[in-house]
Amino acid sequence: MERTVIERSFQDRLSIFLRGNLPAVVVIGFSIVLAIFIAIETGPSQIANIIVTGGMWALLAAGLALVFGVMNIPHFAHGESFMVGAYVGYFVFTPISNYLKDNPNAVLSFIAPVVGVIAAAIVGAIMGAVIERLVFAPLRKRTRAGWVMNTFLLTVGLSFVLVYGTTLIIGPNFRGIPRYYDVPPIDFLGMRVAVDRIFAFVIAIITIAALTYFMQKTRTGRAIRAVSQDETGAQLVGINLGFIHTLTFALATAMAAMAGAALLFMFQAYPTVGLKPLYLSWYVVMMVGLGNVYGAIIGGFIVALLQTATQQFFGISWDLVVPTALMILILILVPSGIFGSEVKGIQEQ
């Protein structure tokens, strides 16, 4: 028997691709045009700014997408993980930097911010695991009915407890650092970029790369993906569901905490610092489709671009209103997101 191969011209294939991914093509095309326009209008420094903050929103949104994809939890307290990370970064970095004032040490001053971020990741992971064991595991044991909505409201309560618990224990004061690296900004392709921003971007890239490797190549990562596709099936082949759930939640919390520590020079640490990162990471996941981890990484950059564009053209006080209006529009037109969501059964619950 002869195999027939359907020959399609490049144009045909392109048009099929474009039609199949119309919302994504429109949004990405629009973003590229907007980015070029901003670059011409205000110079390439803004683009560097977008790429740096975009990396961080990608990190946050990927965690949010992961938690939703694997555990079907719409995580409202994600911003509070960011807040905890910022505090850990502050409390670890400040003593080191005080010590460095008295006895300067080039190597230590280079690794001090890294130590802060790693400490934030560890604390975040522990916090995530504890929260999962204390709150979500008991609820899962009791009932799965109305799971998405119930866990959403649970995380709302959790966010309250974390924010006001922090206010109670640490107080409402702002705690910030002037900068991580006390060196002049670097000129790169005509852009002047602060070293702190490059540091934050490198952290984001390394973490995203590590996450991708972990999810694609390791046994545990594959188990996580299996659980997100089919929980019963995963259980049948011997995957320990409870462990995977705890691990996923810890991973997502650690990622948000890392973002909080890495952006300490921009945001400072205070109890409600997580609000804006929370809004923005929710914009990202709603735009790309709930539970789509890789889409969230691209979406992070698009939202950062939108945010910068709004600040540029409407003024800084509108920077939540205009993106929100656009997200409402996207939610009306394509509720499953521009890249589509592979998570089953959200619409029914």
């Binding site: 719409p74 959403f152 006080s317 939610l331």
Partner: peptide, 24 residues
């Protein structure tokens, strides 16, 4: 057209937008 969590998030976004408008 939205259910459950999507409707809640939509209402939330509308709320954020209203707050921003009142602020501006």
């Amino acid at each position: 057209r939205l259910r459950g969590i999507f409707a809640a998030v939509m209402a939330w976004f509308v709320g954020i937008a209203l707050l921003g408008v009142a602020n501006n």
